[in-house]
Design a protein around this nucleic acid. Sequence first.
DNA 1: ACCTGAACACCGTTCAAGT
DNA 2: ACCTGAACACCGTTCAAGT
Lengths: 249, 249
Amino acid sequence: MSPKLIDDATREAREAEILQTALDVIAREGVSGLTIDKVVTKVPYSKGTVYNHFSCKEDLLTALCNNCVRRLADIFFRAAAFEGSSREKMLAIGIAYMLHSQLNPTEFMLVLSAKTPSVTEKSSQKRQDEHQELETKLLGKLLGIISDGLAHGELTLAPHLSPAQVSFSLWAMSFGTIALLQENLERCGVRQEMSLERELINHSNLVLDGLNWTPYTLDHDWHESVQRMKDTVFAPEVAKIQALVDAAS
Amino acid sequence: MSPKLIDDATREAREAEILQTALDVIAREGVSGLTIDKVVTKVPYSKGTVYNHFSCKEDLLTALCNNCVRRLADIFFRAAAFEGSSREKMLAIGIAYMLHSQLNPTEFMLVLSAKTPSVTEKSSQKRQDEHQELETKLLGKLLGIISDGLAHGELTLAPHLSPAQVSFSLWAMSFGTIALLQENLERCGVRQEMSLERELINHSNLVLDGLNWTPYTLDHDWHESVQRMKDTVFAPEVAKIQALVDAAS
DNA sequence: ACCTGAACACCGTTCAAGT
DNA sequence: ACCTGAACACCGTTCAAGT
């Protein structure tokens, strides 16, 4: 083992500082306005040091995306801890997705960018493996809730459907919805929260009914469930959104 | 009116030539390998002329994406003409999506890229409007089939769901599925067709059952429907895929 | 009215020199 | 062992000159 002149903790802090600075640049000037030069001038390190952390510009973008997904996994963890039926927990995952995308609009759109060939073609293998791992973790949360549903008899899978297929369906639906609504999201911001929320509940009900996941849409008050989630497991996110709304008015 | 030295037809042909050349470059060197310089050297026109057609590099990417979506709309048109129930037609849309993504892998991934901020931030308004218009056209095909289902009593919408919401759901699901599967698509190519096809049928059945769109999954042989689509409305695409498979072996 | 390509500015990436 | 920033190569974009 060779001796280290800087320890892991300070190295990590430095990386976080570079990433935060890059995110600031993107928030102000857009993804196409991000430049390593701009980041370097706003940070007390040299260009070489930045390239010591990231193999290229796209690698930095993937790192930013991974940070965002990592925090999303945390929120999913809390969603799964919601006290309710397995179907309510699955709805909670969708609401978590929504709140997270509203609180982190800049980072969230990077999740789409990071799936784009111009980024994957250049980003380092290490960070793309990490991305894959984080996505597997997200899918794992979905799989856990599906297992709960099966164990409690609230969900019975048709013979041609595996739990993995179902979790993939749900994920694809959430991803697609938010990706396609993104343009509108950017324009309308927090104001549009309510209609997006209704869409998401409808969307979720559609698929979960299709799966025969009880209780069915018409046998439960799902808007009440969402309110209870907001009061409990998602209280921190709701408070932050409220603070944003207050600041805007 | 000022006199024109070149007519619209030759101008259009030139634009098509530039676009095809750009596509060749991307197919060979990836999106990140695309350079206006490279395109210019492979084309009998100057840089200035290329910039006369496209406001910037990203504008060219959006144009390429729009070309792809335009052809997708054609296939959707044929899918809607499939002789069968409204639910079969809706499944045909999904199969059309799949075949198109397999036949045009390079262009298809550009549909994802074109939704990315680094492209939308720079692309011209004109071409982004065109993109919006083309997407509306796609959604229109879905809406038409939904209307058919409602008119024939094969589909009854719950009071909280509008046709527009349903078509958006279906679209989001398809888009999300293909976006998330894309990485795997690139790796495995045509060989994986069969498993992707099965996923897509399952996926479609899931959502259409959720909508109470008859006939239900278990009351019909959907694989037989798909075979009939391939023999009729999608015969051209199937022949092209077969040619690719033959060439590979 | 349209085309051309030299010229410019900017930016990603490297690496020899320094500590 | 790590940091620095000058230097390089490349590329997007413009525009004066030409037809």
